[in-house]
Structures are given as C-alpha cells and as structure tokens.
Amino acid sequence: MSRVQHVSLLLIEIRAEMENIGLWKEDAPAAEALASVQPFCVDTLAFNEWIQWLLLPRLEMMIKQQLPLPQNSEIHPMAEEVFKQLEEDTDRLLDLIGQLDQALRVHH
C-alpha cells in the first residue's frame, strides 16, 4: 500500500471512529472560527472540531489534487492531552491519530 493510500484509509477510519464515539458534529463552525491562526485553532475550536473541519478535509483535498502530503505530523501528543478530559473512549481514535502521524512522517 502506498503512503497516500495508507493516509487516505486512516482518514476514513478516523472519521468513522469519531462518528462512532460521538465526536463528529453535524454543524460546521463559523468561518471565523476556522480562520484562526493559532495551532489547532485552540482559541476557536474544540480539538475534535479541528480534526473534523480542518485536518481531514485538508489532507483529503491534498490527496485528491495529488499534492505532496505534509512530511511531519505531531497531532498525537495534543490529542492525548485533550482526550484525557473527555468521557468518550478515545483509545482507538488516539491509536489511529498516532498511525496518521507515523504515516505522514517521511523517513530518510
């Protein structure tokens, strides 16, 4: 499986897991919230909203347009920190995010 296929599959699995545990939202946040310049939009979005409305669509668009994927990813540490405060069982989601970080890292 190519790196792009692997990332693509992980994006589908992350979405499915977020839906499964109730972290997927039907209503999009305001455009201003999505335009935050803070890392992960911490000032305007919940972390799971950032994943849903910015991370996944951005990576999907890059794959669709055959743009080079990011060569580094450090989402897992932030996810671990944020998900500790949630009641939902986020173990599988954390594992998938860790796999996404791994898949995006380019090994030289």
Rank of each mutant, 00 (worst) to 15 (best):
S2E: 03
S2F: 01
S2N: 15
R3G: 05
R3K: 14
R3N: 06
R3V: 07
V4H: 03
V4F: 01
Q5N: 14
Q5I: 02
H6F: 09
V7D: 04
L10I: 08
L10S: 04
L10F: 03
L10N: 05
I12F: 11
E13M: 02
R15V: 06
R15W: 07
A16M: 00
A16G: 03
E17I: 00
M18D: 09
E19D: 03
N20C: 13
I21A: 12
I21Y: 07
I21H: 08
G22Q: 09
G22V: 02
G22Y: 03
W24Q: 04
K25F: 04
E26P: 00
A28W: 04
A28K: 15
P29C: 06
P29H: 03
A30M: 12
A30S: 14
A31M: 13
E32K: 07
E32I: 08
A33F: 02
A35R: 08
V37E: 15
V37S: 14
V37F: 04
Q38N: 13
Q38A: 15
Q38L: 14
P39T: 04
C41R: 10
V42I: 12
V42P: 06
V42R: 10
D43I: 00
T44G: 06
L45I: 01
L45N: 01
A46E: 11
F47R: 00
F47M: 02
N48P: 05
W50C: 08
W50E: 07
I51P: 00
I51L: 09
L55Q: 13
L56K: 04
L56H: 04
P57C: 11
P57L: 15
R58Q: 13
R58C: 12
L59K: 08
L59P: 15
E60H: 12
M62R: 15
Q66G: 07
Q66Y: 04
Q66W: 00
Q66A: 11
Q66R: 14
L67K: 11
P68F: 00
P68Q: 00
P68K: 00
L69R: 05
L69F: 02
P70L: 06
P70Q: 05
Q71E: 12
N72R: 15
N72D: 15
S73I: 01
E74T: 02
E74S: 12
I75N: 02
H76Q: 14
H76T: 10
P77T: 04
P77Y: 11
P77M: 13
P77I: 05
M78F: 11
M78A: 13
A79R: 04
E80H: 09
E80I: 01
E81Q: 09
V82N: 06
F83Q: 02
F83E: 05
Q85R: 11
L86F: 14
L86I: 05
L86T: 01
L86Y: 15
L86R: 03
E88D: 05
E88F: 05
D89G: 07
T90L: 01
D91A: 06
R92A: 10
L93S: 04
L93N: 03
D95E: 13
D95T: 08
D95N: 11
L96R: 06
Q99K: 08
Q99V: 07
L100F: 10
L100V: 13
L100M: 09
D101V: 11
A103W: 03
A103V: 09
L104M: 08
R105F: 07
V106C: 09
H107T: 13
H107A: 09
H107M: 10
H108G: 11
